[in-house]
Amino acid sequence: MTDLLLANEPVLRLAFFFGVLAALMLAEAVVPRRRRAIPRLTRWVGNLGIVVIDTLLLRLLFPLAAVGFALVAEERGWGLFNTLAVPGWLAFVVSLLALDLAIYLQHVMFHAVPAFWRLHRMHHADLDFDVTTGLRFHPVEILLSMGLKIGVVAALGPPAVAVLVFEVLLNATAMFNHSNLKLPLGLDRVLRLLVVTPDMHRVHHSIHPNETNSNFGFNFPWWDRLLGTYTPQPREGHEAMTIGIEQFRTVGDLRLDRMLIQPVKGPASGYSLNRREEQADKIRRGG
């Protein structure tokens, strides 16, 4: 079964990607959480165009990618789980958790370091919030993220099938938790104990830096709660909150060409993670 999954990796990933994307687009149309501020076509051309560029660059520069590297690591005995005798199920579970924690820490780093924030802010500069926002990442950030995942794979030596499942889950949950989907409040409370929900992650896309610098999780919500970066709700409510950042707020900034050059435009200020407590204190004081 494992060999079958790995042999059909590209087909499986494409099938899950298009299946989840189509299902969430339909769900957003039926039960939207917020009224759209920008027409779909205006945003989707750039957001989906970025996906094509990211995919082509990854296949060109990382032909093996994380799953292929896990197979190489297994053949050559690299990494913790390829040197220790541990049950397969335990290696699988620990690998999923370790990879997810690594992505959480990477996300925090991309908010904390100004040079990385220049890349990551393109994701936050979307003026609306829907399933395509979860696909909107600068190509350089995508390449750096893949490099990090390969580094984790080299150190951990996870089963290749665990890496494949993680990658599929990460892609699916990123689309889910960015979707403009209205869930019953009771269901949201239960789900966010197990997975990052749209209402939980939407807070992260608030224009207010203190909220932007919270709720960093993609797959699992536990890291935010354990490490003190959890914010339950936006202070202005989900319907009234402003999505985006203070920069790049014109419709023209949603064009694909302008999105690609955003890292070199303007200052990388105002959203530094180390200002989070200062900003929270200012809010509490009513400043």
Rank of each mutant, 00 (worst) to 15 (best):
L60V: 11
R275T: 14
L48C: 08
V45K: 12
E141A: 08
G46R: 07
E141H: 14
F17C: 09
R35E: 14
L194N: 05
F62S: 04
R118Q: 02
G228T: 06
E236N: 02
W223S: 08
G157E: 06
F62Q: 02
I150S: 03
L226D: 12
P198I: 02
L97N: 03
L61F: 15
L58D: 01
H204L: 07
W44V: 04
L193F: 04
A98T: 15
F110Y: 14
R118Y: 02
V86W: 13
V113K: 02
L60W: 15
I142H: 01
T133N: 03
R189K: 13
V67F: 08
V31R: 15
A268F: 09
R118H: 06
V161E: 15
T250W: 00
H138V: 07
R276M: 08
Y104I: 04
Y271Q: 09
M109N: 01
S145W: 04
D253V: 05
T42M: 07
N210S: 14
P32F: 09
L169P: 00
Q106N: 09
L256T: 10
V131T: 13
E9Y: 12
G79V: 05
R249Y: 00
V264D: 08
E141G: 08
F92N: 05
H201D: 02
V86A: 14
H238P: 01
G270D: 00
L273Q: 06
M241K: 01
D199Y: 02
V152E: 03
R118L: 06
N177R: 04
L273V: 03
L135F: 05
R34Q: 10
L56D: 04
G88K: 09
D253Q: 00
E141W: 02
F137C: 04
G286C: 05
I261N: 03
E211P: 03
D224H: 06
V108F: 11
A27K: 02
D128R: 04
L105R: 07
R35G: 14
A66Y: 00
R275F: 10
P198E: 02
T229A: 12
T231V: 12
L256G: 03
S95D: 08
R34T: 08
A280R: 14
Q247L: 09
I261W: 13
T231A: 10
L156S: 10
